[in-house]
Design a protein around this nucleic acid. Structure first.
Lengths: 217, 217
DNA sequence: GTCTATAACTCGATAGAC
DNA sequence: GTCTATCGAGTTATAGAC
């Protein structure tokens, strides 16, 4: 509750976005939740969208350091999956992930949000990408995977999961259990050193789906 | 342009959602785009949200058959990835994916949207899940992966990618190339029959990240 | 089924007092 | 830096003519 009016407005904006969504995040709703006159939004941030941009920036910078510290000690994909699961849980519980999802959706209506979100998102995704790059160096997968894109795909997954959680709440545990299984599998295969990388590279070069092949049976 | 007024409204709602987002999808905007009086929304659908619910239902049922037909001949994970990539491309280009993302975001503000979206989403996700189930039967991964959750994760990824595309448009090709690499890798490993499933099952039982182990180097 | 007109309300944003 | 008061435009939704 404490803090400057400016901080209270940012906090109220985030809470309103997370709980009631973009459409319900009006100047009046934010001011009411902050216990502050809505007109102060325009004094401190020029516009309502300006407040939302600052909200995104504030949350991102607040989290970037946490990401760095958590990812630094990671030494395997399984560990990375465990850390990612923990981070997701925090971002979900705190509402940060919902805020991001709502702002992303709103950026289609308010294009000035898009550029700000893009910078902020990269800040966090790059932490994941560099961690992946470090883990895969000297492994059989080195150079085979575009770590930036993997990080992007994982981040996209988190955002999508958050939105799906809106309509069918709760069973994210089963989903993350499955993701843990997958990463444990990849780890095990990497440890065993049995990846036929030459075969994979050949398939990738040919582009299309697998050549004449009998399937998985 | 043709079709009944009802159909024109549904089409106009979808287009407006995809291009301008939830916040800009007002009765006036939809009516204007449909070339129809906005009051007709309330005659045909009772409310604006009612129109959005019908829009979701219409798009989903229209696509369910396509999914079934495309997924039926799939015989490997690589093929599945290729089909998924094609379906994603269609849903993105047609705007269906953007519509889904916007409705999901809007369902936080309009809870009555959530239940409708939940049913519709399951319809498509179940197609993917049953395909996965079929592919993995008799493979080394049978029973190890929760195919419902994998389908859910992949669907979530698509939705997230769509939202990220709003703020940094365009480079989805690199992302899907990376996903193709991953599936090719999994296929190759499955074909080689070198998955140490016993090891994986043991790790999963213990729960935590990998036991004493030197990492990937 | 489709239209006009409008009620009742909320929106973002500003002017100006303090 | 914070407030009140308000403008002008937009919103959903309805009543009633045709």
């Amino acid at each position: 509750m404490a803090g400057s009016t400016r901080d209270r407005l940012i906090d109220a904006a985030a809470r309103t976005l997370a709980e009631h969504g973009m459409a319900a995040t009006s100047a009046r709703a934010i001011g009411s939740r902050a216990g502050v006159n809505p007109a102060l939004i325009y004094y401190h941030f020029d516009s309502l969208v300006g407040l939302l941009v600052e909200t995104s920036r504030h949350l991102t910078q607040q989290r970037a350091l946490t990401y760095q510290q958590r990812l630094a000690p990671v030494r395997s994909l399984s560990e990375l999956a465990a850390v990612a699961r923990g981070l997701h849980q925090e971002e979900h519980a705190s509402g940060n992930l919902s805020v991001l999802a709502q702002l992303l959706a709103g950026s289609r209506t308010h294009p000035e949000l898009a550029t700000a979100l893009n910078d902020n998102f990269d800040l966090l995704a790059n932490e994941v990408a560099s961690t992946l790059e470090r883990l895969l160096t000297d492994s059989a997968l080195a150079g085979l995977l575009d770590t930036d894109q993997v990080a992007r795909a994982v981040s996209a997954g988190f955002i999508g999961i958050e939105l799906l959680d809106t309509i069918s709440a709760g069973d994210d545990a089963a989903l993350f259990d499955t993701l843990d299984t997958i990463t444990a599998l990849v780890d095990a295969v990497l440890d065993a050193g049995t990846i036929p990388t030459a075969l994979i590279r050949r398939r990738i070069r040919t582009g299309g789906p697998t050549s004449p092949q009998v399937g998985l049976g």
